[in-house]
Write a protein that binds this DNA or RNA. Structure first.
Length: 254
DNA sequence: ATGTCGCCTCATAGGCGA
């Protein structure tokens, strides 16, 4: 079972790259973030052989799951704040696995309500994660976490010190997820590797110089972690014309 | 501070979010 996650920075602008990548990589499941529009092309992906479930919003955010297997949508909102209307969360059941797609708030600039929202969102997510552990469910949470877990997960820590994705408050919450028993799929299989990123700025030839950050992750619940066979970052799409600023991360489960 | 995208509109330029 091959499962991938990709922040596409507008599904409309990225329809060709996504199609090309699906046909080449043939994942069973693809988690998409930053759809950036009210419409999701359900029928189009159906012609490519993928079922879909999407949570959309005008202009901003938006998450979707494509799957070759039937999708049971469990929830389109993250518990804990009735006033939160952002399209950032999609909880599903596919082939007996809880598949949760998140677009965690960026949180910049630090010191504003946006950063408070990010931290509150991370706290709300922790309750769901604790629940999955308690019920001993096979599940995974994938997506754009907007968190650089460790210094090795960016090209140069000093250039991120004022960024919300690098703040101690963001990173300690991410580490608390791991302390609960979740496995960071990429890091567990590549414990020492540096310079492996999923996101690079559009500016200043960041990709060419590999000045990026590892902020797109798969967290595996204890019940499913032993099934992890591989986790790789596919930098191919980032090198193409008109790319997203993120590139796909791919896991394989036995 | 800056750079570059993609979105939207009090729309073909500028603001917002990333």
């Amino acid at each position: 079972m091959k499962i991938a996650s990709w922040n596409v920075n507008s599904i409309r602008a990225r329809l060709e790259p996504v199609t090309k990548w699906l046909e080449k990589s043939k994942p069973d499941i693809l988690l998409l973030q930053e759809l950036k529009g009210s419409e999701f092309p359900v029928d189009y992906f159906k012609t490519l052989g993928y079922e879909s479930s999407a949570v959309t919003q005008k202009s901003y955010n938006g998450v979707a799951i494509l799957s070759r297997h039937p999708i049971e949508t469990i929830s389109t909102t993250l518990n804990g704040d009735e006033t939160d209307s952002h399209a950032r969360f999609l909880d599903t059941l596919i082939d007996g696995i809880r598949v949760i797609n998140i677009y965690l708030p960026n949180g910049n600039p630090v010191g504003t309500a946006k950063f408070d929202y990010k931290l509150a969102w991370m706290d709300r997510l922790s309750f769901l994660l604790a629940d999955l552990i308690k019920k001993d469910e096979p599940g995974l949470i994938g997506g754009d976490f907007n968190v650089i877990p460790e210094d090795v997960d960016c090209h140069k820590p000093s250039s991120w010190v004022y960024d919300a994705i690098f703040q101690p408050e963001s990173r300690s919450r991410y580490r608390a997820y791991l302390a609960m028993g979740y496995t960071d799929a990429f890091r567990s299989l590549h414990p020492e590797e540096s310079g492996k990123f999923t996101y690079w700025d559009y500016f200043r030839k960041a990709f060419e110089y590999n000045r990026g950050a590892r902020i797109d992750h798969f967290l595996l619940s204890p019940k499913i972690a032993s099934r992890l066979r591989s986790c790789e970052i596919d930098t191919g799409p980032r090198a193409e014309e008109k790319p997203s600023d993120h590139t796909p991360i791919v896991i394989e489960l036995s």
